[in-house]
């Protein structure tokens, strides 16, 4: 094994950074879709109908107890079969990234559902009643009063979940997707297994930078939101 080469370490960035957009695209799409699905699941989780509560609870349970890498393979191998069987759609030509986005969205929707649900429940429901008595409709009470506060409360946990998603997205290379991680692995293969340390170190550095950006962004957003909306969820208790 050759000694650690700083030059090689630097050259790795040139090899992997062109694939950063793919990694970011997968992350961003997964965040969007898992947030959407997570919102529906959260709504189902607090719905009055036992049917929807059971459906969402089962979903959350199954998905939360599936390891990401297992789910990735399940989606990769199972999804095309399901589509072919039930809808007669052939997905052989689809990009591998589609499967990654589907798997990550399914997976993190279950985590986000819990985050959203918990945040919604912290916001004192009396405010909804007060809004209704002030003549607002259910929908107006939700998006004008409850939702803005839910977002502020959910933000820290949302950021944590996104952090986990970003890390799990690095698994995408196992189904053969060439994202940043895949490019790194290819590079190691081309060097017959040499310079693995430099390559992985470079990958780690890129992830650290991504995380610094995510963290600072969240902090800024949190500050901004809590400044314009002095949210107080302890209000439901006895205060004087």
């Amino acid at each position: 094994m050759p000694p650690f080469s700083f030059e090689f370490f630097l050259s790795v960035f040139g090899e992997i950074l062109p694939y950063l957009p793919i990694t970011l695209l997968i992350i961003i799409l997964s965040i969007i879709f898992s947030s959407l699905l997570g919102s529906f699941l959260a709504a189902g989780g607090i719905s009055r109908s036992l049917f929807w509560r059971t459906v969402t609870q089962s979903y959350v349970f199954v998905l939360r107890s599936t390891p990401p890498i297992v789910l990735l393979f399940l989606v990769f191998y199972g999804f095309p079969k399901l589509l072919l069987l039930f809808l007669n759609i052939n997905v052989n030509g689809w990009q591998k990234s589609v499967f990654v986005v589907i798997a990550l969205s399914l997976l993190f929707a279950s985590n986000l559902a819990e985050v959203f649900k918990a945040a919604y429940l912290t916001v004192n429901t009396g405010q909804r009643e007060a809004a209704l008595m002030a003549g607002l409709s259910e929908w107006q009470a939700f998006y004008r009063i409850t939702l803005p506060q839910t977002i502020v409360v959910a933000l820290p946990n949302f950021a944590n979940t996104v952090a986990a998603l970003i890390k799990d997205a690095a698994l995408a290379y196992v189904i053969g997707l060439v994202d940043m991680m895949g490019a790194g692995n290819n590079l190691i293969a081309r060097n017959f297994g040499h310079h693995s340390l430099e390559t992985y170190l470079a990958l780690a550095v890129v992830y650290w930078v991504i995380f610094i950006i995510v963290e600072q962004g969240t902090k800024y957003l949190e500050k901004y939101l809590s400044k314009s909306r002095a949210v107080d969820t302890t209000q439901s208790g006895v205060t004087a």
């Binding site: 916001v123 004192n124 009396g126 405010q127 009643e129 007060a130 809004a131 008595m133 002030a134 003549g135 607002l136 107006q140 004008r144 009063i145 803005p148 506060q149 502020v152 909306r229 002095a230 949210v231 107080d232 969820t233 209000q235 439901s236 208790g237 006895v238």
Partner: peptide, 27 residues
């Protein structure tokens, strides 16, 4: 009807003035 709650239930994301305005403008 107007309703006054034991725990006030003011809209935490709105100022005192906005709390009163909300029902007038939106409701």
């Amino acid at each position: 009807m107007g309703f006054v709650f034991q725990n006030f239930n003011l809209f935490a994301n709105k100022t005192a003035l906005q709390n009163v305005e909300e029902g007038l403008v939106i409701g």
